[in-house]
Design a protein around this nucleic acid. Sequence first.
RNA 1: GAUCCCGUAGCUCAGUUGGAUAGAGCGCUAGCCUCCGAAGCUAGAGGUCACAGGUUCAAAUCCUGUCGGGAUCGCCA
Length: 589
Amino acid sequence: MTLTLTDELSAIVGAAFAKAGLDPALGRVRPSDRPDLAPFQCNGPLAAAKAAKKNPRALAETVAGGLKAHPAFESVAVAGPGFINLTLRDAFLAEKLDALAGDSGCGGWRKDEAETIVIDYGGPNVAKPLHVGHLRSAIIGESLKRLFRFAGDAVYADVHLGDWGLPMGQLIAELRRERPDLPFFDPAFDGPYPEKPVVALEDLERLYPQASAACKADPARAEEARQATAELQAGRAGYRALWRQFVEVSRAAIEREYADLGVSFDWWKGESDADPFIPELAQMLRAQGLTEISDGAEIIRVAREGDAREVPPLILFKSDGSVLYGTTDLATILERKRAVDPARILYVVDQRQALHFEQVFRAADRAGLFPLDRLEHLGFGTMNGKDGRPFKTREGGVLKLRDLIDMVDARARERLAEGGLAEGYPEEEVADIARKVGVAALKFADLSSPRTTDYVFDLDRFMAFEGRTGPYLLYASVRIRSVLRKAAERGAGAPGPIRIVAPEERDLALALLAFGDATRLAFEKRMPHFLCEHAFGLAQAFSKFYAACRIADESDAATRASRLSLAAAVGRQLDRALDLLGIAVPERM
RNA sequence: GAUCCCGUAGCUCAGUUGGAUAGAGCGCUAGCCUCCGAAGCUAGAGGUCACAGGUUCAAAUCCUGUCGGGAUCGCCA
């Protein structure tokens, strides 16, 4: 396991606490709230004073006294009621930076024991076009996948298509009304079913809303759909064959759109893949006496003493025998255990489904299927429109992901033209750059607020390309690359050991060395926005450094070599951070 | 109705679980390209942290209440 900078400093300060007869855990060092005084601080003396009923200021002085001789610190000062302000020696920073420059992980944190992880994206539904509601799960999930892999885990990302519920029955029933002549609907048919899909993507996109509306308006139609669902799940051959076509057609489209966002999966499984595990699951639950019949449905109770509010039981089998997604989610856990025996399963799904997962997790835990603390629902907030309500188009409909991608793409092209960037580049490259810029804007906007909160989707703001945006980061990355390329062309010489001479270099050094804490925090909290914060801070520190210091044409050879190393290290780390966010960087722009 | 989340600068949002002078981006004002990419950099104005109590050396953060917004609450996913 790599030690982050604050870990290392905490260990040093903790030892000084221990020497003073205090709890070393109180020596926790963190970035300072007052960077004008010192870059790091330790507030431990205040807590220690409370516990020991002593004067915090005096304790701070004692601890600080034990630290002053340490080679890492330029100064150790006690301030206010008992804060210890820590400033690091430039030589110490330079040494750390040289190590970081040679590290394949760019100074990022890695864990020491790898786990096998499954990430569940709570999948899109077959037949429903991807819409903006699917965006967050894809973007956040992709970043977490990369982050966990970076930390050392073996990750299986499973799109987990919604391909087994009522919508499937609705589609079947709808198509049967429209084209009753198809062999799929003839129970007596025994020949081979058509291999070529009888429906196209456009058919599905038309049929589903149609069916859904009909079921809402007419109970008889709803009953038809319910029956078709039950028959599909019971294994009616024609329905299964037809359903396979739905899935096939739908999946191809879904895969393409995710690819445009730079999102990919290791598994394209669906709820239906868990179906064969349902009998065994039911058996397991019944054998333990966990199920009961209630109003004709078979349920498992998951309420507990002390629940603040009532947690309803999970319905395993509806009164008509068909299953709900809670059942398939449980069966999927069993399926995954058999497949890769994961240490944890992460569900990157809308926060509004928290109760559902609470039910599933408790049921899994009660059944001895999977421990509660290793099933994590990583919920996220909704993407709202400017009115503060879930994002809708002007017409009040749901914005398709395809349309969103096109909008972002077009806007990125406009902005490139306005800014006079990418001028004279081949058309193919301009298209590639526009796509990358647009996706970066979208992803950074989505990832930069804490996962759990709602955020307002404002295309104009995201695509402004100034300030705290994805394009700013791409710009910084591309600029570093360009500077280094030109330096090489001019014969600026080889990079050399890093030495800090300007204050902007010191700030940049601290920004680089914060990567360990950022990656660790992002991993432990499962919160990619810490990576965004880091990437922005790093890019900003570089811009300041760039504005203040010459690099390629610096006259002092040693300083020039140092700055070339520094710039290269920033470029590599920035690209790495962007990679962990799932943001691709163009060569130039 | 019950439970949970939220209310911070004109706008969009952070705030590392109780610490110093509450931060960032946008927008606004004033500057910086004969010099490695100005989508950049520098400086400035802008706050009763919804409101009222309480806990303590210390509260945007913890507790209570009020107001306002949102989410969820057994056979949809």
